[in-house]
Amino acid sequence: MASNHALPVDLVYIFLVVLSAVMTLGIFATIAVFGLKYRRRHGREAHQIEGSLILEITWSVIPLGIFMVLFGWGAVIYFHERTPPRDSTEIYVVGKQWMWKIQHQEGQREINELHIPVDRDIKLIMTSQDVIHSFFIPEFRVKQDVIPGRYTTLWFRATTPGTYHLFCAQFCGTEHSGMIGQVVVMNPSDYQNWMSGGTIVGSLAQNGQTLFQQLGCSTCHRFDVQGRGPNLTGVFGKPVQLQDGRTVLADENYVRESILIPTAKVVSGFQPIMPSFQGQVSEEQLNALVAYVKSLSQAPAGAAGTPTNNPGPAANQ
């Protein structure tokens, strides 16, 4: 089993295969037996039978019962698959026609390859810069569509070192079948070696901080005094009171939307004066900004790039 999700999925799958085999063979066998026993012969007439309420109820209720068990079983697995543990290692993924771009927190970047350590919870925060893609690792039994305009997440814990296929599962144009790569699951020591190789210019959050200055975000979103925009320290992961009375959770999608469409959800007490950064920042830069804003909730203000294993104040989703 290559990931923590693989065994639960395979178990219910095997149950379904057995159930289907029994049902299908049962129906085929019944038809075959009837076909032999009741084939047309001289001197034997069909026996007229109207139906049977008891039988109808039986063969409605029993399948319904089995279906309800399957519903619950599948739902529990799905619930688990969709609920990443809080202290997962977060890795950003950007899909584009026709490649996967990966950004690690520590600053490493890869294309069509994802290097991860074994036995650690990994949460992918994914978006697309063009059409819908789907991030699919068959051996991990996980898949999630990657959608332009927002983040979707996927989490797993690889359990066996090795190299696994990575596919795009949602049709995305000419080279759809070429949008493939590999997931390399490494022992902790190999992973450390891999992490320390290559040239890295700062962590993702540090890059985000640089961008925050360059784009002029810091002129309004100040940390010393109250600026024209809200102070972003400690905002991430907390509920935010909006101007129109709604309360939203400040998650990745909220931060992202606030950068691209600032007027969509204006924080209570502030004016809708922020310009949109749509088209001015790439998806990778957005990820860096999100990582930076996130880092502001994990450590003293401005101390970006600190270890990510500080307990966040709330779950991300």
Binding site: P8, V9, Y13, L16, E81, S134, P138, R141, K143, Q144
Partner: peptide
């Protein structure tokens, strides 16, 4: 009769797809 047999398989594999955890793997 062919219809009954094949529709039974088609229907039962639909049950696979209705099962959330399994659909995630075999979808698309």
């Amino acid at each position: 009769i062919g219809f009954i047999g094949l529709f039974t398989i088609g229907g039962l594999t639909g049950v696979f797809l209705a099962t959330l955890g399994v659909d995630v793997h075999v979808h698309d």
